[in-house]
Design a protein around this nucleic acid. Structure first.
Lengths: 354, 354
DNA sequence: CTCGCCGTTGACACCGGTTTCCTAACGCTT
DNA sequence: AAGCGTTAGGAAACCGGTGTCAACGGCGAG
């Protein structure tokens, strides 16, 4: 193969068109199947042939057509992020992490919000995954906890990684966050600060994390000899507005709680708002601890004490797991890293002043 | 066509497999081309035939394979959102809007962050668009202002909609936000409140919106007979951290500004932080006006006075424009809606106390 | 009655890859 | 030197759709 051959060959290509595998085959003087073998790194190609074909590929700037490849493979090169999390901040952080891991892999990310209250949820997700023949799917809570959705993914033979606060699947398909632990740390912190009337605004019942975080809090308080009064427990929906509403009801109680632990940061901001409206100063009159430690936790005033969940890292790890299963690793044999949250102490919770 | 025929035909399908156009054709007793015509709503199909084929499609639950269709059409059914905006909140809002418009259209959204400082930006975007044969692309600022990127999209014949603060293209390909207007409103507001030493933290130079917002502010102040002292102008990068840095330098001046207008909300929060650190109370000691009016603007304390930009709506409108160009409408003939920002007065800016 | 047109439809090639199956060539053994 | 297994590589079918173009039947016109 001389430069001349290539120049000649090049001249034979239509100008405005991308080179195809046929062009590569013709110019390299091999069959398209051999080119295909080179692309897919088949071991049944002589080194000499491989080099020759690779040179032509580089020279032509050939990249295989994803649609054609997908058609033959019966699989696309798209990763889906299917989420129902109501906190935009949570979603965007996770998405960034997934994109971090996907960069350079040749895979692209398709985002797909959904609603678990929708009776057609399963059908909708089936249509999405089946139509796009997704390479894989990443599921953050709470859609990660929907077994009907998982059943469809298994049926469609679509690899997935679930992110949840309890282990629900094979290690290779799970990313577990020990929410029990994180909430316990928050509970101990508040108890150690002297708080006895502690309020809790939980997430929606549909999220396992709600129960986990509630359980962690309760357990830690019990250890410290503090009982969580159920009147001080309100249910939110992981949104700012729901936090506002729950805080209103809790702070209307007499005596009102001296501290409130919220299921996520978004709701903690709701508590901030209500406290201000009522003329309560945080942390002097009310301590607040959030969960997630979103970037905004350290931007509001007072800086929010929160349980740090490395959401972006979690997105990255989940995507990496997916890539690992692409490389033929058995999901059952992969390890299941547990994400351990940790309390970040800032200014919104302080010792109870007698 | 009787139910029996269908039952028989059904039995002939492999159980685990999706029906293909061939199955539909065989069962309906027509050629696959005719089925294709029905799918694509070709007018050259007799009503009777159309009904018959449609019935079989419904019965079988047939949906065309996007990859095969894409291969033949030389176009996928994916819309790309290519962004370089450093504010996650901005991005997530816009993304939601785009998804609002795409819902039900059969199109999916592929998100693709990028970096304009990357020397390979153009090549990277070309590879992304060309490989995925994107149906269309939505470009928020500042990547929307990169003519080299646009040139590639034109060359690849990929429809796009640009979102920017100045008109740079045909009406059908632009969504313009009149940032000049919004900033002018903010400027008038501050001047009317009696402020004379007004600071401005601009966005990065790469964003046209930075100059637009700066110009709007300057113009409005001039009208009111107030000059914008250039020593009170600092450049930020639309990030919280850059806002902190710029605020530090501005508030270190003597005399310090009595009000600061920031190019976006994210940086306004940076000003909040520095003010607190310096013991300045907003709005008593310092008025602050932001831009974008992100949801968080009304969640922080004090509530941030900000120029409202309906980012989510803009995402939706941009996507709708893209869909319109799909329906064969000529981009040059479409109207070019101008998004008019408006000031939302809250608590962070107040009258100057003598 | 025949021609030509129009609205419909189908046969066949094609999009750009992969998979299946087969052959030729090579190196080794006996 | 013949026999045989192994390996590199090719021809053709296939993945599931769309484009091209010719053919078909029914109609009014000549």
């Amino acid at each position: 193969m001389t430069d001349d051959d290539i120049a000649t060959a090049r001249g034979g290509l239509k100008p405005g068109k991308r080179p195809t595998i046929n062009d590569v085959a013709r110019i390299a003087g091999v069959s398209k199947k051999t080119v295909s073998r080179v692309i897919n790194q088949s071991p049944f190609v002589r080194e000499e042939t491989r080099v020759k074909v690779s040179a032509v590929i580089d020279e032509l700037g050939f990249t295989p057509d994803v649609q054609a490849r997908g058609l033959a493979f019966r699989r696309s090169f798209l990763v889906g992020l299917i989420y129902d999390n109501p906190s935009p901040n949570y979603v965007v952080n996770m998405q960034q992490g997934v994109l971090d891991a996907l960069r350079g892999s040749g895979l692209e990310l398709v985002v797909h919000p959904c609603d678990r209250a929708n009776p057609n949820l399963v059908a909708e997700i089936r249509a999405f995954v089946e139509r796009q023949k997704l390479f894989g799917v990443i599921l953050p809570p709470s859609v990660s906890e929907d077994e009907a959705v998982i059943a469809v993914l298994r049926e469609l033979d679509c690899p997935y990684v679930r992110i949840a606060s309890v282990s629900l699947d094979e290690p290779g398909r799970m990313l577990v966050t020990n929410d029990h632990l994180g909430a316990a740390e928050a509970g101990r912190h508040l108890a150690d600060l002297g708080h006895r009337r502690i309020g809790f605004i939980s997430g929606p019942a549909l999220f396992r994390s709600s129960a986990q975080r509630g359980g962690g809090l309760r357990g830690a308080l019990a250890e410290k000899g503090v009982a969580l009064d159920e009147r001080y427990v309100a249910q939110g929906a992981y949104t700012f507005e729901s936090g506002v509403e729950a805080a209103r009801s809790l702070l209307a109680l007499d005596p009102r709680p001296t501290a409130i632990f919220t299921g996520n940061d978004e709701m903690a901001l709701g508590v901030f708002k209500v406290a201000r409206d009522m003329g309560l100063e945080i942390p002097r009159d009310l301590s607040v601890v959030g969960y997630d430690d979103l970037p905004m936790a350290s931007r509001v005033w007072p800086n929010l004490t929160s349980v740090r969940l490395p959401i972006r890292d979690m997105g990255r790890m989940a995507a990496e797991k997916l890539l690992a299963s692409m490389r033929g690793l058995d999901p059952a044999k992969l390890d299941q890293p547990e994400v351990r949250p940790s309390l970040v102490v800032r200014d919104s919770a302080t010792a109870l002043t007698a």
